[in-house]
Each structure stands twice: as C-alpha cells, then as structure tokens.
C-alpha cells in the first residue's frame, strides 16, 4: 500500500515521462505522428487482403471485414507494444532508472500509459472508416449502445497490460530467454485472440467439428477475449458473444494478472537493480 502511495505521489513524474515518450517518438522522423496511424493501418490492410480477399473470398460472417479487423487490431497493438516494451523497459533507460529512486513500477506504468495514448490516437482511423461505410456504401453499419461500455473495456485492458508489464519486465531483465519467448508469443497471441475472427465464427467451427462447449471457456481464459469481444460489439452486435459475462471474466482475470505481476515485481526488484 505504501508503494501505491509512492506511485501516486509521483504521478506528476509519470505524466512527464509519458509526455517525453510521445515527444521523443514524434520529434525526429519526417512522418512523425503519421507513423502512429500508418503502422496499424498497413497491418490491417495486409490482414484484410490475406484473410478477407485471398483466403475467405467473401464468405466471412463479419462484414465489412475491414472494420472488424480495425476494431480488433488497434487495441491488440496496444497489448502487443506493451509486450514488446517489456523486454527493454528497465534495461533501455538503465541510466535513468539507476539515477533516481522513483518507485520502479513507474517505468511499467509509463509504457502502458504512453502506448494507451498512442492507441487512442489511432481510433480516428476507425471513425473515418465507419463514416465512409455509412455515407458511401449501402452496407448497414451502425454504432451500438455498447460504445458506452468502451471506457470500462479500456480500464480492464489497462489493468491487464500493467499486469503483463509488471510480470514480464523483471523476468526479461533476469532471464534473456524470456524476452525471446515473449517476442514469439506476441505473434501467436494475435491468432489466439479474437482479432481476425469473431467468437461467433469460432463457436460455429466448434459446433461443426463436434468439440465440447467447455473448450470455449478454456479459450475465454485469455483476458483479451472478453476485452476484444466488447470492442467488436460496438459495431458488430450480432457477431459477438455474451459481452457482459465475458468482460466480467476478463476483469477478474486481469485483476489476477495484476496482483501476480505486482507481487513478482516487488520480489524481483532487488535482483533486477543489481543487474542494471
């Protein structure tokens, strides 16, 4: 608890660090801020082309598919970036970490928060596409009431990301292998989470193959399932599963992840500092 208070006292510094992150990210390259938009946009287009055009040839339930991808990939990238950061979070800024006695959790919070802001910056892409489909095509695109649950989904994903960062950043520092595993896992994770397909589609596949229902609940033990499902529900209420139940499950799992991360971080902190 004392630790939490110390972090709260230093929230101004957290704020400064986040601003610094954003400044550094946009200060130097020619395209600057545009990269934040281009990066996920290109990724989405590639997925759309491969899965929407080549593989499925129009037989995908979630239409328009590019909107489906956007609502999944953009938030997924937030978590993916946090996973990517966790390997060098403490090492990269070692000089800074070792020149101040700030609560070290701040370095994790800073990564999660600045990546969150980056994620928010990419949301206009989705808005533009939604407007495009509403105005220029006759596909029925509408924003549902679930849009008001978004802040809650953001909060749950924030908690989950902090938990991941707290768990992985000290482990990556102490065991270089973990860093490599995390890198590979991030790629797998994109396919293990409902990013390019929906839970409805998945349930259909389970039914076709005759797989037991409880397997779906095992699948839902990934906290991102409930979170991404909520994002999808904003534009695709028919293709999503029980939003409230799954998001609640995600919230519980994320809280668990956070507690584990918090404890592990405290335990490994002295050893990590010796390595820096």
């Amino acid at each position: 608890m004392a630790r939490a208070r110390a972090i709260w006292v230093n929230r101004r510094i957290l704020h400064i660090l986040i601003i610094r992150d954003l400044k550094v990210r946009y200060s130097d390259s020619v395209l600057g801020f545009a990269w934040t938009l281009l990066d996920p946009l290109l990724l989405t287009l590639v997925y759309w082309f491969v899965f929407g055009v080549i593989v499925a040839r129009g037989s995908i339930d979630e239409q328009p598919y590019i909107l489906w991808l956007l609502t999944g990939i953009l938030p997924f990238q937030w978590t993916a970036h946090v996973l990517g950061d966790s390997g060098r979070l403490l090492g990269n800024d070692a000089k800074l970490v070792t020149s101040s006695s700030l609560p070290r959790e701040i370095w994790v919070l800073r990564s999660v928060a600045s990546r969150f802001i980056e994620f928010l910056f990419t949301l206009p892409i989705t808005v533009v596409f939604v407007l495009f489909f509403m105005v220029f095509t006759d596909q029925k695109v509408s924003v549902t009431w679930w849009v008001f649950v978004l802040p809650l989904a953001f909060a749950v994903q924030f908690l989950f990301n902090v938990g991941l960062g707290l768990t992985l950043s000290p482990l990556c520092m102490l065991y270089p292998d973990v860093h490599r595993i995390v890198r590979i896992f991030t790629t797998l994770y994109r396919y293990l989470s409902p990013v390019i397909y929906g839970l409805g589609t998945l349930a259909g596949v389970f039914a076709d193959r005759g797989w037991p229902d409880w397997l779906q609940w095992v699948y839902a033990l990934n906290p991102l399932v409930g979170i991404l499902n909520t994002y999808h529900a904003v534009l695709f209420p028919r293709n999503t599963d029980d939003v409230v139940a799954l998001l609640s499950l995600s919230a519980v799992l994320s809280a668990l992840c956070f507690v584990v991360g918090w404890r592990l971080f405290r335990r490994l902190e002295p050893r990590v500092l010796k390595e820096l």
Partner: peptide, 20 residues
C-alpha cells in the same frame, strides 16, 4: 546526464529531467 534524451532540445530536457 542519465535522464537526458539526445533527441530533445536543451529546454525540453531541462523541464523533463528537472521534473524527474
């Protein structure tokens, strides 16, 4: 000079590192 970022100006750096 640990907290100073090479890409930022002296002014920005002073504000940020001072804040840290």
């Amino acid at each position: 000079s640990g907290g100073f970022k090479a890409d930022l100006t002296v002014r920005d750096n002073l504000h940020i590192v001072g804040g840290l």
